[in-house]
């Protein structure tokens, strides 16, 4: 029932908004990879123990997503269907290696903090998912916009988690102390369980907001039908 209505809802949006803008915004809000599609949970839970890590991870993923989407869209008529997954993985792995080198060149501390999760971007479902579901079927411009939207949506989601976890777990934001010496840090928040707690809390909030919006958007007679059901 709800899926039907939301699909109808998005169709209305598609008509009323310019196409490219919708492609871009979709990844940030409506199809947010973390809060709506629940993709890429591994880095979301693992590297969001501080804002800097979350931001670095988000930007790294954004870069890889953007480059791979662009290249996949450019080569979409050149890659035969039978070898497409292998081709996408090679493309993605290339850009992950690039990011890996660049982060090492920028800061070794950051590189050590992110650990194996930089290399693991290669298996992040968002990136392969966008290559397969969007870039391989659309023009380069659209693929770029899609990558930007999804990447920014992913980064924002990581920041949402990283912010809460760093503030509660360490009393700091971006390393700047917020509450002074006397703040009792909730160390569980920067430990792995904290990632699950905070993600759960955000999902709760998002679903609650979405449900409320859907209820409001429903016309009275639809609402009536739903209550009857």
């Amino acid at each position: 029932m709800t899926t039907n209505t939301s699909a109808a809802h998005s169709e209305v949006k598609l008509k009323s908004q310019p196409d490219s803008m919708d492609t871009f915004l979709r990844g940030i809000w409506q199809d947010n990879p973390v809060f709506v599609m629940l993709l890429g949970m591994c880095p979301v839970l693992a590297v969001t123990n501080s804002v800097v890590n979350a931001l670095a991870m988000g930007i790294a993923s954004l870069f890889v997503l953007f480059c791979s989407n662009t290249l996949v869209a450019l080569l979409r008529n050149f890659i035969p269907k039978q070898v497409r997954i292998a081709s996408y993985i090679v493309i993605i792995a290339t850009f992950v290696t690039v990011v890996d080198y660049v982060i090492q060149a920028i800061s070794l501390d950051l590189y050590n903090a992110l650990g194996a999760f930089i290399q693991l971007i290669v298996v992040n479902c968002i990136i392969l998912g966008r290559a397969e579901a969007f870039a391989s079927k659309n023009k380069v411009g659209a693929a770029m916009l899609d990558a930007l939207g999804m990447g920014i949506g992913f980064t924002l989601a990581l920041l949402c988690l990283g912010g809460v976890r760093e503030i509660l777990g360490n009393g700091t934001f971006l390393g700047i102390s917020l509450f002074g010496e006397n703040f009792q840090a909730w160390s569980v928040m920067i430990l792995p369980p904290g990632g699950f707690f905070v993600l759960g809390a955000w999902l709760l909030l998002f679903n609650w907001l979405k449900e409320r919006k859907d209820m409001k958007a429903l016309s009275p007679d639809l609402q009536l039908a739903e209550t009857k059901n």
């Binding site: 009792q184 909730w186 160390s187 928040m189 430990l191 369980p193």
Partner: peptide
Amino acid sequence: AFVQAAFPVA
């Protein structure tokens, strides 16, 4: 269990 993980010293 939550406070054990959150405030291990206290």
